[in-house]
């Protein structure tokens, strides 16, 4: 199993498209860093905050800026996850390498498990990149001071806790994006063209996002059960106080989505006729 997973990483590492997301994110971060360095942003919270507080120094630290950047980059990450994961099985079917590898002794379940591990690693690596690089880059610009949390109240947390909360948010983000990866894998085992699952996963994500934001009767009722609604709740871990009930509900909902998608993917793939 370890050997199969290593092979999957090797394959991913030889494809340029695997690095497309991180390359674009790097470029974007470089632009942001230059922008922040030249024109430091004002106090978050707007006019009301500025009217009620007298600030000495800057409330901005690498932790706060990273948290702000994460919000933007998560949206950017989604199409790249769809692209990378959608290709995992369907890409092999399209290149006909699927039949070459499935003629080998390992079972389809092991093969797909290695793909799941690759998808997990791919997603995790992107999230680590989205948190790690800004923390380092903005650390040079803003330093690692305490983190301000702006909500109904303003809270200030120490750097140790701030780092821990960002790590927690990252783990939640990985967990949430695994739903996307699982959905991508499910679509990837269904078809034999790589572009289909990538577009399909992104289309489903976008449709559920829209459904989740429509405040109408039934749609409002199902909204909390949509993974798109729960995916963005990672930010609860950098709010004060942390609503643990809501976080737990998010983790469970996302877990159920991933579980169902992966179970369906395994079931379909184990019974599928490989005719490509």
């Amino acid at each position: 199993m370890l050997s199969l997973t290593r092979i999957e990483y090797l394959k991913l590492s030889h494809k340029l498209r695997s690095f497309l997301g991180s390359m674009i994110i790097t470029a974007l971060l470089a632009l942001m860093a230059i922008g922040f360095a030249l024109h430091p942003p004002g106090m978050p919270g707007g006019v009301a905050m500025q009217a009620g507080f007298v600030m000495v120094g800057s409330p901005l630290s690498a932790f706060l800026v990273t948290r702000m950047v994460m919000e933007v980059l998560l949206v950017l990450l989604i199409p790249f996850i769809c692209l990378g994961v959608g290709d995992l099985v369907a890409g092999e079917a399209e290149d006909h390498t699927l039949r070459t590898v499935l003629c080998r002794p390992p079972s389809r379940a092991r093969f797909l498990a290695a793909k799941v591990a690759a998808a997990f690693g791919f997603t995790g690596a992107h999230v680590i990149f989205v948190i790690g690089v800004p923390l380092v880059v903005f650390g040079f610009i803003f330093g690692y001071g305490p983190m301000f949390i702006f909500g109904q109240k303003v809270a200030i947390i120490g750097r140790g806790e701030a780092l821990l909360r960002l790590l927690g948010s990252g783990l939640y983000m990985i967990w949430g994006l695994m739903v996307l990866a699982s959905l991508g894998l499910l679509l990837s085992v269904l078809v034999e063209k790589a572009i289909g699952p990538a577009i399909g996963t992104f289309a489903i994500f976008s449709a559920l996002m829209i459904i989740g934001t429509i405040p109408l009767g039934f749609l409002k009722t199902i909204s909390p059960y949509l993974f798109t609604t729960q995916l963005f709740k990672w930010s609860l871990l950098v709010s004060e106080p942390i609503p643990w009930g809501e976080v737990t509900r998010g983790i469970v909902t996302l877990g159920v989505w991933s579980g169902v998608c992966l179970a369906a993917a395994f079931l379909i793939f184990s019974r599928k006729d490989i005719t490509c």
Partner: peptide
């Protein structure tokens, strides 16, 4: 399948890897 080797229709390989690397991957499998 442990002691079976096969070519099913046209052989297909990872185009972005060398012939040797392809064999290493398939051997590991």
């Amino acid at each position: 399948m442990r002691k079976v080797g096969a070519i099913v229709e046209e052989p297909a390989f990872y185009r972005f890897l060398s012939g040797r690397r392809n064999l290493e991957i398939l051997s590991a499998m």
